[in-house]
Design a protein around this nucleic acid. Structure first.
Length: 679
DNA sequence: CGTAGCTGCTTACCT
DNA sequence: ACAGGTAAGCAGCTACGC
């Protein structure tokens, strides 16, 4: 089948594959009806900020976040309404419910695990078909459906604990489960009409279509299917989302960094800079501090506020008007400080504060109840962003350094401690930081925001998650979504390890898990007329061409055992295309065969060229990280045989290159991983 | 007692 | 909390010679 034929009927194809899903849907619909009858679903109106439902209002927008609304017992989406430039909360109307999968059949559960059926949140048992990639066979599973996520897991008496050892996919957070099943792509445009959610398909011009068609003519159907899906992510327009950056200043003695958890000192300034041109400078009136002279560079009027309470209240009012709020270290400082200051020192009730904190083992996150909060410090701190996207351009992640790197402008230099500045100086200093923070997302035609949206689409993560999490979470989410979309069981780490085992090679470095790349000892001296050769994205290419994936390496089929991987006892499947090889290969091909040349195409407009550059950049980050995660326990689909197969094939390629050079009498004066320096 | 040589640890850089 | 490989600095230990 050609791509063209294929693209003409993607919807039909999908429907066929989704028959099973339709059955679930009907089932779930019944469930919801039942629940409604039981009056267990009581929507509380005041919690919903303009629900998009009741009056059949229609809406077009970009999905930015997904979550679970406990009071309404439904999944919800935050959608950025393109018309009003506001966030709309949309509650699920499909009746999707939380569930886990069990390898026990319905009668087994009924007879031997009757406590599951007696669980107060239990809803229904349903037999479904799944495919087990590791054993390469279809299996029947029981879907154990519950009315709320906590009945599945998270409590001592949750259903997953009753089915311990026989339950699957029970650790996936419900809102993720919902997004996977509905195949919701965060960052993509959707339409809501009659309270139903539908994706808006991007228009791809005929010339682009034929160009791409030629490139991928010889690929298999499953490749084309995935191609069709991913192409949409790159060709859907990205809106410039309305947003505001803010910064606070806190009184401090002797220039000590204040403790945001205690928030003992006064907040003396809060400033804002928005994409709509808004600039606000709120400073606290202090009897012992002069107002001072107006600073000519300051583009906003100073607003002196009489009390700290008023200052914070006004700040909350401003934040409310923007769908996205930007901060630099807001998770650990600014928003956290305001939160604790308001509640512990200024007598605010929790309900009056639009901020709430969540604590994970790694770090704290400050959430806004009605907006998306991006902490740019965390985003720029991400190693993949720092190294892969920006080639280590900034040495540390301070606002000053990052600002200087991208905006050629750092923070305002101060000669006095903050607490001693006159109000005008204080306001100017604080506003400048807000402006810098905003500019970090607007420079170069909104490069950073566009990059964030593209990465959201590829990884299917929400804006808040993508900007805070590392690449192992990004790739985990991408692969989980792809498993669900194909009705593949998501294997847990123990299952992969049990079937695939440990690494077989020994690392050069003590404490490492397997052998890595070859580095040719440099020949000392000054060399002239040196030629450098290297492989283009070696590891991702290996993963694609050798069909490497957790299920294809050391597969079950006897006939594949002949297909040996050099330098290892491993072999690789000849019958099935590996899921990892498929996705990584596709992303690599799109980058190398199409977008890379587009980014340099002089025939197209500068803006278009720029967009293609950002697309190549986003692909590069994902591709570069893909090999690494296979060797990392932090990645739940990690598989050491896959990781060591990748490096072993890489070593083989470079060694054979070296040997060929020796045959030809060319001296290899240096080489590292994927390159040779020749003289 | 002084020191060569080892190990372990860290940090920075390479792909 | 994406991987391994190389190089260098430093502290602390041990074996060995005087």
């Amino acid at each position: 089948m050609s791509l063209d034929q294929f693209l003409k009927r993607p919807q039909e194809k999908r429907k066929q594959k989704k028959e099973e899903e339709v059955i679930f849907k009907e089932l779930e619909q019944e469930e919801v009806e039942k629940l409604k009858e039981e009056k267990k679903v009581k929507p509380k109106k005041e919690d919903l900020k303009k629900p998009v439902s009741e009056d059949g209002e229609s809406l077009e927008g970009i999905i930015l976040d997904v979550g679970y609304d406990g009071q309404n017992a439904k999944a919800y989406l935050w959608i950025y309404d393109l018309n009003t430039q506001t966030l709309k909360k949309w509650l699920d109307t499909s009746g999707h419910l939380p569930y886990l999968l069990s390898n026990l059949d319905v009668t087994e559960i009924r007879t031997h695990h009757a406590n599951v059926l007696r669980h107060r949140g239990f809803a229904e048992l349903k037999t479904i078909k799944k495919f087990d990639l590791l054993r390469d066979r279809p299996i029947k599973m029981t879907k154990v459906i519950a009315r709320d996520p906590l009945s599945i897991g998270g409590r001592i008496n949750s259903i997953r604990n009753m089915l311990k050892g026989n339950s699957w996919e029970d650790y996936i957070r419900y809102h993720k489960c919902y997004a996977y099943d509905r195949q919701i792509v965060l960052g993509m445009p959707y339409q809501i009409r009659d309270n139903k959610l539908n994706p808006i398909q991007p228009e791809i011009s005929d010339s682009i279509r034929t160009q791409i068609l030629k490139l991928f003519e010889s690929e298999k159907e499953e490749y084309l299917l995935a191609l069709d899906q991913f192409l949409g992510y790159f060709f859907s327009p990205i809106p410039n989302i309305k947003r505001v950056a803010f910064d606070i200043e806190v009184f401090s003695k002797a220039d000590r960094i204040p403790d945001a958890g205690k928030a003992e000192e006064q907040i003396i300034a809060i400033t804002f800079a928005g994409t709509d041109g808004l600039k606000r400078v709120l400073v606290l009136k202090r009897d012992d501090v002069e107002k001072g002279e107006r600073i000519s560079e300051c583009e906003a009027e100073l607003e002196i506020v009489a009390s700290e309470r008023e200052l914070i209240k006004e700040a909350f009012k401003i934040l409310e008007k923007y769908p996205i709020v930007l901060s630099y270290n807001g998770d650990n400082f600014d928003l956290k400080y305001i939160y604790h200051r308001a509640i512990n020192h200024l007598g605010f009730q929790k309900a009056q504060v639009p901020i709430y904190m969540t604590t994970t083992p790694q770090s704290e996150v400050a959430h806004l109840k009605n907006n998306i909060h991006i902490d740019l410090y965390k985003f720029f701190h991400n190693r993949a962003i720092k190294i892969s996207a920006f080639r280590n351009m900034y040495s540390d992640v301070s606002l000053d350094t990052v600002g200087k790197t991208f905006l050629e402008e750092g923070k305002v230099c101060l000669e006095q401690p903050i607490s001693e500045l006159c109000l005008h100086e204080l306001g100017y200093y604080c506003l400048h930081d807000s402006e810098l923070t905003l500019d970090l997302t607007t420079f170069n035609n909104n490069l950073i925001m566009n990059l964030i949206i593209l990465l959201m689409r590829i990884t299917r993560l929400s804006m808040e998650d993508l900007t805070r999490q590392g690449v192992s979470t990004w790739l985990r989410n991408l692969f989980y979504a792809e498993h669900r979309a194909r009705a593949f069981i998501i294997p847990n780490p123990e299952y992969i390890q049990r079937l695939k085992g440990e690494a077989s090679t020994k690392a050069m470095i003590k404490g490492k898990k397997y052998k890595g790349a070859i580095v040719v000892k440099p020949h000392p001296g000054v060399h002239f007329n040196v030629v450098v050769l290297d492989f283009a994205s070696l590891y991702p290419s290996i993963i694609k061409t050798w069909n490497l994936s957790y299920e294809t390496v050391n597969c079950k089929h006897p006939e594949c055992k002949e297909n040996k991987i050099p330098e290892t006892p491993h072999w690789v499947c000849t019958r099935k295309v590996g899921i990892m090889a498929l996705i990584i290969g596709l992303l690599r091909d799109l980058r190398v065969k199409y977008f890379k040349s587009k980014a340099k195409d002089k025939e197209i407009s500068k803006d278009e060229q720029n967009m293609y550059k950002i697309i190549t950049q986003s692909l590069k980050i994902i591709i570069n990280a893909s090999y690494g995660v296979f060797g990392s326990e932090a990645f739940p689909l990690f598989c050491l045989p896959v990781a060591e197969a990748t490096t072993a094939i890489g070593r083989d390629a470079i060694t054979r290159t070296q040997n060929r050079c020796a045959e030809l009498g060319i001296e290899v004066i240096y080489g590292d991983t994927d390159s040779v320096f020749l003289k």
